[in-house]
Design a protein around this nucleic acid. Sequence first.
DNA 1: AACTCGGGGCA
DNA 2: TGCCCAGAGTT
Length: 213
Amino acid sequence: MNKKEIKGFIRLLAKARPDAKTELNYSSPYTLLVSVVLSAQATDISVNKATNKLFKIASTPEAMVALGEEKLVPFINSIGLWRAKSRNVIALSKQLIENYNGQVPQTREALEALPGVGRKTANVVLSVAFDQPAMAVDTHIFRIGNRTGLAPGKTPLDVEKNLVTNIPRELIAKSHHWLILHGRYCCKAKKPECWHCPVVQICHYQDKNISPF
DNA sequence: AACTCGGGGCA
DNA sequence: TGCCCAGAGTT
């Protein structure tokens, strides 16, 4: 879609879910970073439950390192992939203390150099915590981009470049939430629920005459 | 490009 | 019971 159509698409999602916000805990850049690292291949609601308890004990790199990997595990062993995640969170926290004075760095290069942080996680932190023009493309957004014709691309990076250049900067972070919620509750991977879709009029999916019903 | 990590949620 | 989930690292 062109820039005007993309803006219209986002506007319709915004109208359908005006109160959309992430389930992830982003009371600070650090808790957001840890939450997104923990969220890989897990539902954000399950991550929210785990981190609500965890961040009462350890909401800073210093407190996290003091807690230690062994005592961190019980907080997150219900969200899957917990071995690598607990290892990464402790190692990442140590690096923040050693290299960045305990702060979360604000460049893509520095973020992606942290253990457990890839392009998607870096983009979430850059856009949501630091208000920089970055779009995190997860499986939902990649699917919606291609299925609807919003932002077709063979790779998540293609979709990311398309969206980041076509969505007004001040709407990028919010668009991220709107798109993900649309993916979870309506434009589902297996059975898209087009009968209550807010963008059904401008979606290209039905043009292909593929009935999801 | 394929493989691995992984328990909980849900059909 | 089987499949999926706000991915990243390794081979």
